[in-house]
Design a protein around this nucleic acid. Structure first.
Length: 210
DNA sequence: CGTTGGATTGGCT
DNA sequence: GCCAATCCAACGC
């Protein structure tokens, strides 16, 4: 696990971490399939003072991990069938995290194809629930450390994305807090979520201030 | 205890 | 564009 990001990286405000995570590599060490990995091409920040965040109404059994130490995975189940993965950020007690929304598949692609039931490369990890299915991330990883040795899941340094290739805009799928421009993605990357649904993928619309 | 709706996706009109 | 799938956390009574 060379170049794995440390707790210090995650112990910053979630919008800072979300922006900094673009270009990093999420790695899942699967007991059967080995290394499953993808480059992060889309991420969103959530924090406690944020009506769109699960942590907005305080800690509960479901969101408790969000209020804990940075560098842990917050994995939640939603819509009766999907898991989504966050990285806990900030300080203990704060309730902030970054939702990983899309990856560009790098390693273990055959295993991803088998789990996802599609071989379209740009549909393997283009969405928060899709990438969790592709990397076999579920409730069992809620609360798992991303920074300890022997962790089953971690994030590697990856390669920097030039500033002018990163777009900033409103988060997807939320009703309140839409005005906060806390979604960061690689402009024009085919793996960014929502492309098939007309969600603007970089380019045309000017990125909102960030 | 009953109701509501969700940080989504895929399939159909 | 619209909606069902399918669980369960959160909230109201």
């Amino acid at each position: 696990m060379s170049h794995a990001l440390s707790r210090r990286f995650f112990a910053r405000p979630s919008p800072v971490v979300a922006r900094a995570l673009v270009g990093r590599v999420l790695v899942r060490d699967h007991p059967v399939d080995g290394r499953l990995a993808g480059r992060i091409v889309e991420a969103e920040a959530y924090q406690e003072d944020d009506p769109a965040s699960h942590s907005y109404r305080g800690p509960t059994p479901r969101n408790g991990v969000m209020f804990g130490e940075a560098g842990h995975a917050y994995v939640y189940f939603t819509y009766g069938m999907h898991f989504c993965m966050n990285v806990v950020t900030g300080r203990v007690g704060e309730g902030s995290a970054v939702l990983i929304r899309a990856l560009a598949p790098l390693e273990g692609i055959e295993a991803m194809v088998a789990r996802r039931g599609t071989s379209e490369p740009h549909l393997l990890c283009a969405g928060p629930a899709r990438l969790c299915e592709a990397l076999a991330i579920d409730r069992g990883l809620d609360g798992a450390s991303l920074v300890d040795p022997h962790a089953p899941l971690w994030i590697e340094r990856g390669r920097a994305v030039p500033e002018d290739r990163i777009s900033v805009g409103p988060r997807i799928g939320i009703r309140r807090g839409v005005e906060r421009p806390w979604r960061f993605w690689v402009t024009g990357d085919p793996n960014v979520s929502g492309a098939a649904r007309g969600n603007r993928v970089g380019t045309a619309r000017a990125p909102i201030r960030g």
